[in-house]
Amino acid sequence: MLQLTDVAKRYSATGKQVAALDGVSMHLGDGEFAAVQGPSGCGKTTLLLICGGLLTPDAGTVVVGDTQLSTLSADQRARFRAGHIGFVFQQFHLIPYLSLLDNVLAAALPLRDPQARQRARGLIEQFGLGDRIHHTPAELSAGECQRVGLARAMLNSPDVILADEPTGNLDPESGEVVLQAFADFASRGGTVLMVTHNRDAAQRARHVVKMRAGRIE
């Protein structure tokens, strides 16, 4: 479950205060798959970062599951993120010197989970990369990289997956794999919040949230 209540966030740019989010409220229950759409600079990424506990709002509350993120310290939020939130990025953000397996296992670094390796192998197999397990990101295609990103996001069985333009760099076929993975995750009770400019991708979500100038339309 992901719930935002009157969340506001301002940035100061060249001496002026710019409202990235202005009283945003939103509730996504378990099993919900929502897409956020809107023009560039409307606050989509800020919304995603606040939901992930990477940014703290100037006002309002963010609750993931039973935890209100704004009451946690930075290190507590980091620990919470590791166990409850998965991230998928447009640029994949894989670590270039780690193998595919190690990139997936990087998500378990803060948790020291002895079962992580077994789960990682299972996810890699599930995403059809079983024969590439020791390859580095430089040896993978964009679609394969994003599948590694998906496996990494799902390794710790998070409650919420936050995805920022996950299909932006992918061909339609690879994009479909990603969207299907999100749909499957939601069908298993997880919550997915995906920022996308892609109308087709947004249509795969159960809900589409439109944003403009830091507000939900």
């Binding site: 992930g52 290190d75 620990r79 590791a82």
Partner: peptide, 16 residues
């Protein structure tokens, strides 16, 4: 820089 950002996003703390 980006790698550190990713690791922090994945939940690594300051001490890590």
């Amino acid at each position: 820089r980006i790698e550190i950002g990713i690791l922090r996003t994945l939940g690594l703390r300051t001490s890590h």
